[in-house]
Amino acid sequence: MTSSPLATYQPDQRALALIGGEATDANLRRYLHGIPGIDAVGLEARAADLGTRSIKTSSKRWAIDTIIGLIDLTTLEGADTPGKVRSLVAKALVPDAGDPGCPRVAAVCVYGDMVGSAVAALGSAHAAGGTEGVNVAAVATAFPSGRASLAVKLADVRDAVTAGADEIDMVIDRGAFLAGRFGQVYDEIVAVKEAGRRADGTLAHLKVILETGELNTYDNVRRASWLAILAGGDFIKTSTGKVAPAATLPVTLSMLEVVRDWHRLTGVRIGVKPAGGIRTSKDAIKYLVTVAETVGEEWLSPHLFRFGASSLLNDVLQQRQKMTTGHYSGPDYVTID
């Protein structure tokens, strides 16, 4: 991709240059509605077609290890405790107790008040935004509904970052988005990003959850994706996992297409995180295929693609054992967390 002058802009300048003015509802609407639409039937047919790729032998082995390294191993329950989080971290670090060669996951994803427990449990294995070890992602901004004042949401973010979160998974205000208050959604994302600034001036990595299950249409998903990227999101993420449908292959494909177009336009690479509902390695491989054939294989890296999942890991591990031993494994041969 040829480098675009837009690549050198700060996100806010770039957005203003693209939408041709201040980030008002009217300017954003004009911009977002000027983007080509999506035909749902065609999108779903393309996703289904990508899902028929047959990944075998060496490709499958590579895919399985890659999937593990892309997982944000997640626990987001009201019943979470520091003990549960320690257990999750242990699993993140050593997914398969029987195989020390098994790669680690990309990050653990927890509620903000559990960040401290996760960081402590990781100890020296805490990647802290780097590539060695495991990162800590925190859901924030009154996750999952996002129904709180901006002040509360920003405090939520600051708490998590202060406690050591490397990544913030925020939710957009779907109500505002559906009501056409695009400027409000935009401003909140900008504010959340800034709230993730650490003492040393660096910013927590920002994943923007669109909650596609509430946006209802692919056109909305596409517009929300553009909006989140314009506002400075580092990642766009499908779902909280608390609303059905969560991640689907067509929704993820439509988001990957936005990311691809953004890269064509600006030279900047944005990450994508499907979350919720991806439970089997077979499904996860379909996502890898979709990523590779839509934005390119370069995206199959933790800084550009993640799976938000909990049960996926164990299915992948069983597949991995099958490939190593040549026979099918069972749930008792992988640890529950």
């Binding site: 047959s54 990944i55 075998k56 032998t57 060496s58 490709s59 590579w62 054939e293 294989e297 199959l300």
Partner: peptide, 10 residues
């Protein structure tokens, strides 16, 4: 390896 060079699946 290059993932997109999917291994043969005859």
């Amino acid at each position: 390896m290059k993932f997109l060079d999917y291994a043969p699946a005859p």
